[in-house]
Amino acid sequence: MAELFDGIWWSGYVWPTILTVLLIVAIMVPILIAVAYLTLAERKVIGWMQLRKGPNVVGPFGLLQPLADGLKLMLKETVIPSGANPVLFLIAPMLTFILALIAWAVIPFDEGWVLADINVGVLYLFAISSLGVYGIIIAGWASNSKYAFLGALRSAAQMVSYEVSIGFVIVTVLICVGSLNLSDIVRAQAGGGFWNWYFLPLLPMFVVFVISALAETNRAPFDLPEAEAELVSGYNVEYSAMAFALFFLGEYANMILMSGMTTVLFLGGWLPPFDIAPFTWVPGPIWFALKIAFVLFIFLWVRATFPRYRYDQLMRLGWKVFLPLSLFWVIATAGFLVAFDLLPNAAN
């Protein structure tokens, strides 16, 4: 019994567990706050773009609005429709929310600031983001409602389609980096300023990635799964109170995640835009957050600017434009790197 409590037990199992839980909390709390304030930012930004003020009543500049919304949703009743499949109906929003959060385990916030520095970080992110469709499709089926089901089917087809081009974009970046580790991807963009980041040499891929990220997160102009004009609210039409809130938070957490992915793959992660004094004083996580905020602003800007795509146009864009373009670019990049002997020589 005594051995159980000596060094190995404590330093091998208990202490790492406590440390990991603390780290997870340290990552989750800022993300949840960011999700809450992203909803406010969205309403404010779109308000300004439409020459309105946005929420400005609750708290100074409407800053307490997300808390008020959260409180309201928590106090409401979670209605489970009588025809619904109750277990799956409740699992779906949890799944969406959990998947949006666990992906953050591999995102590097700064040199060495990463919860799980795994070799296949990019694949993990890709795998998790491809699972996001399940929350929506299960919700649509379990609701036992036609609107919800149509929304779910649209979403499934859309997310599977755009994942293909996202995959090719990721492959292009990987060819340039020579590693699947996210920290290595950021390090490969170091040395110099923003002109070393991959968004410039791989500009078409950057554009494809951002547009595919919009489709992957079901954001405007690709928000057909919840097209309120034709499907009421799509897959989440039967959800109320916290179950709805989880979908809502999941969607916004996914937006932040895709922005984080864009930042890591194309915008140099934690690196400063210029490698000279005043910029290098700012800590890496702040640059990382600023870049995420910039990409998120693009998400909101697009929503305020473009009308919703028609479904066949969405499919055409995914399969007939992005897929050939990204496939071509993978081959072109690989050919260029081989021809000029620039292929990265990864450690092992």
Partner: peptide, 23 residues
Amino acid sequence: FLAMILVVVYVGAVAVLFLFVVM
């Protein structure tokens, strides 16, 4: 690597289409 590919390919794509058809 195989684990992630299994999730990406089978869970993320093939099973979605299964589910799609079965539903």
